[in-house]
Design a protein around this nucleic acid. Sequence first.
RNA 1: GCCCACGUAGCUCAGUAGGUAGAGCACUUCCUUGGUAAGGAAGAGGUUCACCGGUUCGAUCCCGGUCGUGGGCUCCA
Length: 647
Amino acid sequence: MNADKIEVELAGSGSVLFPKGVSVQEILSGQDGGGRDGFIAARVDGELVDLSTKLNKDARVEGIRADNAEGLEILRHSASHIMAQAVKALFPDAKVAIGPAIENGFYYDFDVEKPFSPEDLERIEAKMAEIVAEKLEFHRREMPREGAIQFFRDRGEPYKVELIEGFDGPIVSFYEQGDFVDLCRGPHIPHTGFLKAFKLTGVAGAYWRGDERNPMLQRIYGTAFPDREALKKYLKFLEEAQKRDHRRLGKDLDLFSFSDDVGAGMVIYHPKGALIRHILETFEKREHLRRGYHIVVGPTLLKTELWKRSGHFEHYRENMYFTEIDGQSYGIKPMNCLSHMLIYKSKIRSYRDLPLRYFELGTVHRHEKSGVLHGLLRVRQFTQDDAHILCMPEQLNTEIQGIIDFVIEVMGIFGFSYEMEISTRPEKSIGTDADWERATRALMGALEDKGIAFSLCEGEGAFYGPKIDVKLRDALERRWQCATIQCDFTLPERFDLTYIGADGNRHRPVMLHRVILGAIERFMGVLVEHYGGAFPTWLAPVQAVVMTVTDAQLEFARRLVDEVRNAGVRVDLDDRSEKLNYKIREAQLQKIPYMLVVGDREVAAGGVKPRRRDGTQLDLMLPGGFAEMIEKECLEATKGRIGLGIV
RNA sequence: GCCCACGUAGCUCAGUAGGUAGAGCACUUCCUUGGUAAGGAAGAGGUUCACCGGUUCGAUCCCGGUCGUGGGCUCCA
């Protein structure tokens, strides 16, 4: 053993001896890509460190490049420091807050007198380019906690002081590049020249520490990539996502609209949008009946007294609308559970009756804050595919598993991938700890039994119980909650729901609140983006359009439309005196699944040669054969649930 | 609700150093009857530029407020 040497195990190339105090950079320089700018940081014994880190003992070393998730995060985090440096250079009075890497980029929060303008962003971006060109090294420094507090106090950075005051450890680290110093755990890229492709993407207000009682800071968003090509690809993705935006497609495909005159957050369904919704609802009713649910309908207005009994008045009032009738206060329902419980209570229940599953396509109103409204994805009036299952505690696991199966099957039909989360007790809530514990365990147990992975969100549950949330993604990869399963021991208690058990005594049932699609509005919005407006045939409001080549085929075309429509296909006729190309283009832009061109050849043959939306041309078939083909396609896509003639 | 930006014909947008508005597409009419992603011509279309006030001889343009939209924050299906 040589006391001056350390043994370094390099990923992929075995152990090598180096002198003590060697830098990670030197160790990796012999590695593939290490000689140039390949590595931006390293992992030493499992921990991410700077390349400048010096090693004094045996270690395992692995280089980190900018082209994987960890490397990207380091790159973007460094980009946020460079941006902060640029902002401080241009706006010396700006106070820096925090600036992390996030999913698709990074941001940095600043406290400034005047909010940043788009022109400011350009200047900041230009300044960043200068800093990058200077190739300033990132230096890591460490300082005792007290000294660090003093340091930032002297520099007039109150937010940094507040951050350090919240730290535990005796030593804090920070990074310095040029004249800019920032509190930071690191690691960072070796020097600013490693930032090869970046772009500032926007400004927004953001509360300090995410609390609306705190002052609002100005947040600048940006993104960074290993090279210009990757950045271009990302910007291209954003462009493509815009084309899939459901608000854009909702207009282009004439599905729905909003009106200033009506008010914010209220959807107006046009014929095609309403038809899609109708198909979804028919699908839902069938699926629920198949699974032993009872369809019910409750009122929209319920006396405020009842909302007080349920706890909604206390815990959910700010989201509710109230009105007065004959001197009596009423609340517009934000949830459907109350009338379902009243149905349960309408007579004495036996354990033999359980589980009871009440399903309602229930339209609810919630006063969402104006700033959160977002197309169909966040509205103030929406319809839930809501159900409440009342069961015995010992039936809970089976019922929850049944719901999970239901969700998985439905999401499979639409082709969605999803993420599951369990949310636990929030601060503002009702019920005993023991009930919450039982309920949370029931939800987790069911997911575990099915071997489904989930993440945990502490304190994110509903006020009456914990829940499993299922999140889908929109075109911009933002996650939206759709399905949710909520376990509730509390409302049955408050409404004194009981059943007679086998022992002849009264017992308390448990209630599950659950939705599968969630809000029909939101689900449709995500659905539009998921399909990019090209709905599968079973959901397409118009499944086929018949188009004549000349007026000579009009009579045949009309008979064809009649026959196919009678068979249950949703078909339109385009008999305008336009050229075929024009009609096809229009049908294509409307993303209609099938086009039936009718010319003299089709008239002579008495059949059609369908052209699919993707451009493929099918062989000649009889009108009846076409309808059969559509039906088969719909049934296959929906596992036999939806065929023709649904409307 | 908070921060910023925005709100001109059905849609996408242009415009005016403040002097009562324009294009393309769509629409209507006419010509064209043409086989797989835009044929041609003419016309109509804005209670005058989201709404309400203010400044001004005069406001779509400047100021204030309201409503709405977008990107975020907070919150949530």
